[in-house]
Simulated scan of single mutants.
Amino acid sequence: MSASDGRTDGNGGDPRGGPRETAGVVAPPPVIFSVPLLLGLLANRRLGLGFVPEGLRKPVGFPLLAGGLGLGLWFFREMRAADTPVDPYRPVSRLVTSGPFRYTRNPAYLALLANYLGVSVLKNSLPPLLLLPLVLYAMNRGVVEREEAYLREKFGEEYEAYLAQVPRWL
């Protein structure tokens, strides 16, 4: 099996050590965020573990949610303008460094994080926050590190220069 026939070693690379076709992420990032969020919200229905004073739920939760949605839309717009796929299971065509990518290498994941926090605050649900370290670990190890290795391999010095200028998160 070779990378040219679409099969990989599970990490996006050719099983014999050839170039990667994709980053080989462990799961779609929206799934990594949404499953623990939903499980935490369901757990909270039984446990009732609130953490936000009633008067702060909306003033904190809605800006987080709006910021996450706005950042996510900005991310999609830049990816579309660059004519490169958003799907981590498809090969990227170019390195995007404009728009939100000028400030963070992972605007989509920051958007998902803001949405996760916004929903948790609005629902006054502590269990999703208790699951958040696992979500961030899964994202870092199973998505971000794999994407960075893929982009480093694909874009070389151009990506190295970008890494030196833009932080991973903020």
Rank of each mutant, 00 (worst) to 15 (best):
Y109R: 01
L113A: 15
Y89M: 11
Y103L: 14
P85W: 14
A111V: 05
P91K: 00
S93W: 02
F101C: 10
M79A: 11
P59S: 10
S98G: 15
N106A: 07
V60C: 08
K123P: 00
L110W: 02
L95D: 06
N124K: 03
P63I: 10
L95F: 07
P91N: 02
T97P: 04
L64I: 06
L130Y: 08
V60T: 09
L110D: 11
D87E: 13
V119W: 06
F62E: 03
V119G: 05
G67K: 12
F62Y: 11
R94L: 11
L73F: 08
K58A: 13
R90L: 15
L130R: 03
R94Y: 00
N106C: 09
D87H: 06
V119P: 08
L64W: 05
L126N: 01
F75H: 12
L129P: 06
R94I: 02
L73D: 03
N106E: 11
R105M: 11
N115E: 13
L71S: 05
L69P: 01
G61N: 02
R77S: 11
L113S: 15
L64K: 00
F76H: 03
A108W: 01
F62G: 00
G99Y: 09
P100R: 12
S93I: 02
V119I: 15
L126D: 02
L122Y: 03
L73A: 12
P127C: 09
L122R: 00
F101T: 06
A66V: 14
P128L: 10
L122A: 03
G118F: 02
L110F: 04
M79Q: 15
L126H: 07
L73H: 03
V96P: 06
K123L: 09
A82W: 07
G99K: 09
